[in-house]
Design a protein around this nucleic acid. Structure first.
Lengths: 346, 346
DNA sequence: CATGCTTGCAAAATCGATTTAGCTAAAGGA
DNA sequence: TCCTTTAGCTAAATCGATTTTGCAAGCATG
């Protein structure tokens, strides 16, 4: 407690430690970085240094380390919007995983705006992040390509660009929909509507393909009017209206498959507004879980994203790039099966 | 496009710019930092430097700047858990506000664990953050005091410690409950249950006080059995069970006031489990909004946190400390009124 | 006995900026 | 004429680490 008074109290530097131990700064550095052996520092001296370090509680100045080594020990995490529950959950796991490897996270969100994404990448570069974890918005191909061209470690999550050779981790979108469809078809439903969003991202396409193939396998004809594509930017009430019109227009539709949780939530509103009951009037399955779906009566059946696995895999891929400079192979493009969770709605 | 090839391509440094402009590094620095006048750099030279900077797109190496100036232009944001919706929303606004002042955010979450909080503060200090934005967990008084003692800029959010003189911003908890109670009492309910959590934080106490005072003002006797305190750590199903027991034990209870959104959600489960209907069998109001409450039929009436105002105020207070070294006054302890939102449940 | 090779550590260069001190030439004053 | 100012820059110190190079003493070798 004796050295805490006074406001001047400068932070202890490596130099100070060296002085106190009666050795050169370089010696302290070697000892602290486990290079004592390699640099032939005698055990005696090494111990003396360690003692001083322990006594003073010295901690290296990370900014200085960063400047010298060029490693910030910081990763940039860019999500669509941190207030989305999937992304929030992702961020949480990623943070703790990164910590295990000694990395910090700088987080930012694109709000699904490619231009903002571009700016944020610039910002993260200024911050000298060592690697990027990105859930890309449509239109960010160029940015990703540029990162690759500069050999910056990147891992995409949640989506990717088929034409860009980049490591990614995401749920098996196609397989997830197939799981859900299998359940519906198994229950004897054949008039199944598919409600999706008007976006160019692969995962959306793959979900749609899962729907088509599932029908085809059962020899159920695909009808275009049983598919609704909602524009990403359409306001809440318009979207609800569109879904309601879709349901009434498709007289006799037995089940609805929503391709994102955002759509599913809109779907709940729409269905409630029409006074329909799940699953009797209409069965419902949604891709991607949400807190609401657990609670909303009678509970919404979903295909859940394996958030934890996605996060862990992503970090692990990134770490590989970071210390091995690994190239992009098929092994670094991972699809993880989703988890089908049966609740009351289907 | 001509200088992007090759993987060596080192980043442009101030020195390089100086060389290209045919001046000394210091001159470039002066020009870039607006000290050209002060340092009597001729307009001619200044323009030459500016031209080179613009042409090359030079951007200062922030780590080097940080090391030299001691300013990281980074703020530490510590929330209870980023996967909570209130915190996620907060993080979002704070991020964009901070950006307007040229600051980045390093975010982390305590998971409501004071010990983890202590560690994280150490981590943020190692990272040289310029200031702290914290939603404190119970038991973090010591940590906050230490930050103050070291004259580190801090603003608390969501909660605070009455015995520690520290700037904070939060919703007017007492007033918020009063608003909600006024609504219930105005509708003629008098048997109102209050369900809260077993935590030592002031905001919880104040909400409880709001409940008691509201009753007192209407001359309705306070009954201890109409209050349920759920332990923070009790598992989900136990808590639901407790709430259900509470409801059945309080025969004739007309309305329930949940003191946090977490409890409210448990409440919905409990009420649904008992087969009760809102608001006829039991009216419900919850402190703090949640996505679910908008959608869950018939919509849950809530007192909503003014997230945006809280975030903006917090940043503004922090900026004040950062450039003025402002002391803690009553002006830096802010309570912002909540917003009462009437939905179907009460 | 001169030369070479370890050993054990210290000195100095470096990362990329900011900031203080210094230097030269022109101008002003006695 | 000589000394002091002032203008206009540049050189050098500094932030706090890491890493390369240097250097003296001890030992072996031919």
């Amino acid at each position: 407690m004796k050295d805490k008074k006074g406001q001047g109290m400068k932070r202890l530097s490596l130099k100070d430690v060296a002085q106190m131990a009666g050795v050169a700064p370089s010696t302290v550095s070697f000892v602290l970085n486990g290079k004592a052996r390699q640099m032939r520092i005698s055990d005696e001296l090494a111990e003396k240094v360690q003692a001083v370090v322990k006594k003073t509680g010295y901690q290296p100045h990370s900014v200085a380390v960063n400047l010298r080594t060029g490693q910030s020990k910081t990763l940039g995490l860019m999500v669509e919007s941190i207030s989305g529950s999937f992304f929030a959950a992702l961020a949480r796991v990623i943070e703790s995983e990164a910590d295990r490897y000694g990395y910090n996270i700088v987080y930012c969100s694109t709000e699904n705006n490619a231009q903002k994404g571009t700016e944020l990448i610039r910002m993260l570069n200024r911050q000298q992040v060592d690697g990027f974890l990105i859930t890309p918005a449509a239109g960010m191909e160029k940015d990703i390509e540029q990162l690759l061209a500069h050999k910056r470690p990147v891992v995409l999550m949640d989506s990717y660009f088929p034409e860009v050779a980049v490591p990614y981790v995401l749920i098996d979108n196609y397989g997830g929909v197939r799981q859900g469809m299998k359940h519906l078809l198994g229950k004897g439903y054949s008039k199944i509507g598919f409600i999706t969003v008007d976006m160019e991202l692969v995962q959306i396409q793959q979900r749609f393909q899962g729907y088509r193939d599932a029908l085809k396998e059962e020899n159920i004809p695909f009808r275009n009017k049983q598919v609704l594509k909602i524009s990403y930017n359409s306001p809440r009430d318009e979207a609800v209206k569109a879904i309601q019109d879709f349901i009434t227009a498709n007289k006799g539709v037995e089940a609805l498959f929503f391709s994102t949780n955002y759509l599913g939530i809109l779907g709940l509103e729409s269905i409630a507004g029409l006074g329909l009951r799940m699953p009797d009037d209409v069965a419902v399955i949604c891709f991607d879980d949400h807190d609401i779906f657990r609670l909303y009566p009678p509970g919404i059946t979903v295909v859940q994203q394996p958030v934890e696995e996605i996060a862990k895999t992503a970090i692990s891929l990134l770490m590989h790039q970071l210390d091995k400079g690994a190239r992009v192979t098929r092994k670094s493009q991972v699809q993880i099966p989703g988890k089908f969770i049966k609740r009351g709605s289907a």
